[in-house]
Design a protein around this nucleic acid. Structure first.
Lengths: 340, 340
DNA sequence: AGAGTCTTCCAAAGCGCTTTGGCTTTTCCG
DNA sequence: CGGAAAAGCCAAAGCGCTTTGGAAGACTCT
């Protein structure tokens, strides 16, 4: 059932039917009702390919997925996706993932924009002066950054959590508990979120006349194994920290294992606070010692990103609005006063 | 730059240019070269929307993503996606995720097929007599099932791993080591993979005149917490198992924690084998006691699914070929002889 | 009543590609 | 050398929708 047929059986022109369906004003309300009614009754659905060819709009949002033999998609992605889906589902928005060589995403961005494959894109895990942000904003497609970039002479729309504030709070708590030597096991510090977290920790330390030791901060891919290794290194050297802030729950697993392997305890010998993106399959309260966390649901962020993207597509949201969500500090058993 | 312009500047008709580009035979090789050359030089790329309207082909593969407030996307999905991306990237295949209410995916399948949004779809986590498989095969769109369904009077193409064989081997090993009371902590047993795993364990037990105790098998969503709870329950009741087979590494985290909480040890008091889909961020060899596993890379499966889907789209693969991958049994420290 | 203004609808022109059917040229072969 | 077959190319008709530029009729206003 296509427009032509529908128009014919209503004895109307395609124009009128199209306009009636798309809510244009120049059609009689009574006629519109008739059209809407018939459309529903016959299950008419406009062919998206045709509509797309005519309008250039696709009703899909895009994401360029960095891939490569040595590239692993972040497990956080799936939770983000859940959120995105939550919103998209109820708005018949589809998401198209365009896999790209992690080292050459530009080609893919240009392709999906030139092809008008999607109405908007989002960018995640941005770095300072991220070339994708610059690219996409010159390409002139609606977009939203999940996270923040830095160092541009222009503004851009983003949704981020207050990473700096979160880790500032976490560090401040540890300092209040008497800890003087903190360590930070961070994610990839070429990414802004990691930079912000480090900044938060440093600021808290500085406020008490302390600082983050050269060897007390490390930046690694967030795996359990890396959490373990980093912790071993930290605790086996002299000047070992008495408290650790850790950028992910997955690494925290490794931290816990390392502490145990060394015959130490949490929080007796070392206090631990990790960032929790809220996974359904791994909860901080279920760690052998319940984990204190800075918590922010990445799933909710996904839903919000979809919502704002939809708003930008339809012109409801404009400009370069940045949105920063506060992060909860949840104190559980893994922190205690510094050992004597 | 569109076909028309390109044709005009080559002083050829659109027909010829189109045919030259698409490899049709009725065009002079010399002409073809000229066309290809000019196309490349001017960076001509056919507009996919237009091509799609004309041919009905979209160059994308689809996946209906079950979502809902109470629905969490499986973290395995992200690894599968990495694999899919590995293949898709080099073939300019995009993946479109269509979020759907988990309880009504049919509508969405019908929509994406009717709209010709994608050239093929894949289905994952199938159940016996999965309605999606039946639906999709009547809708007549190329598809592939990742996993297996059962109980149909027709065949369908799939890619699965030998879940039954894997768990049969695992159980057999445990039995050989003298274990008599095995337990299985399984995933959702409405899904075929879980059924097959249980079948494998039962078959191994039966071969030695043993059986799986009524209360020694449980089916839960695969989270750390559920692994923990299941293990507590198993070990605290009378008739506790001396060996556990577990369907995921994530649940295995919970198993390990529970065993430790009870003051027991692995493998002294209880042996453990888990299934490992091969995550980069959580490795069985890094468990406090290195974990024995049945191993199969879900990432490789993702790549293979994409490859076969592409083959089916282009007509290179036909029929209902089923492909079952063997699973490695990797023995590490978490298994030992049964306690006296 | 005539001019101007809405309101409501329509015919037709795209959007950019593929593909059908046909028209010239070449090539082949007896 | 003549006729058939093959090769090489083209014009034009879709694919199904949106949108431009009117046109006809109904209303308003002076």
């Amino acid at each position: 059932m296509n427009l032509k047929q529908l128009a014919h059986m209503l004895a109307l022109s395609q124009t009128t039917v199209s306009r009636a369906l798309n809510g244009y004003p120049e059609v009689n309300e009574e006629t519109r009702r008739r059209v809407m009614d018939a459309a529903k009754r016959h299950g008419y659905r406009p062919n998206p390919s045709a509509r797309r060819l005519a309008t250039g709009k696709s009703g899909m949002i895009g994401y360029v997925l960095p891939t490569g033999a040595a590239v692993d998609i972040d497990p956080h992605f799936v939770e983000f996706l859940s959120g995105l889906g939550d919103y998209a589902r109820s708005h018949e928005l589809d998401l198209v993932l365009s896999p790209a060589d992690a080292d050459d995403q530009e080609t893919t961005y240009r392709r999906i924009v030139a092809n008008r494959q999607v109405d908007a894109v989002y960018i995640s895990s941005p770095r300072p002066q991220d070339s994708r942000v610059a690219l996409v904003s010159t390409l002139g497609i609606p977009f939203l950054v999940h996270g923040r970039s830095e160092g541009f002479d222009f503004d851009y729309p983003y949704l981020d959590i207050d990473n700096e504030g979160a880790f500032h709070e976490a560090a401040r708590l540890l300092i209040q508990l008497g800890h003087r030597r903190l360590a930070l096991i961070n994610g990839d510090d070429r990414e802004t979120f990691a930079i912000h977290r480090e900044r938060g920790v440093r600021r808290a330390l500085a406020a008490s006349g302390l600082s983050l030791g050269e060897r007390h901060v490390c930046s690694v891919v967030m795996t359990e194994e890396n959490g373990y290794r980093a912790t071993r290194r930290l605790l086996e050297e002299g000047d070992a920290p008495t408290a650790i802030a850790c950028s992910s729950l997955i690494m925290a697993l490794g931290v816990v294992r390392a502490v145990r392997d060394l015959g130490l305890t949490i929080p007796g010998d070392v206090s631990l606070i990790a960032h929790d993106d809220v996974f359904p399959w791994l909860k901080p309260e279920n760690f052998s010692v319940p984990l204190s966390t800075t918590r922010s649901s990445i799933r909710l962020a996904g839903a919000r990103v979809a919502e704002r993207l939809a708003a930008r597509i339809s012109g409801l949201e404009e400009g370069a609005r940045g949105e920063v969500w506060p992060v909860d500090l949840v104190v559980r058993g893994s922190v205690a006063g510094a050992p004597a």
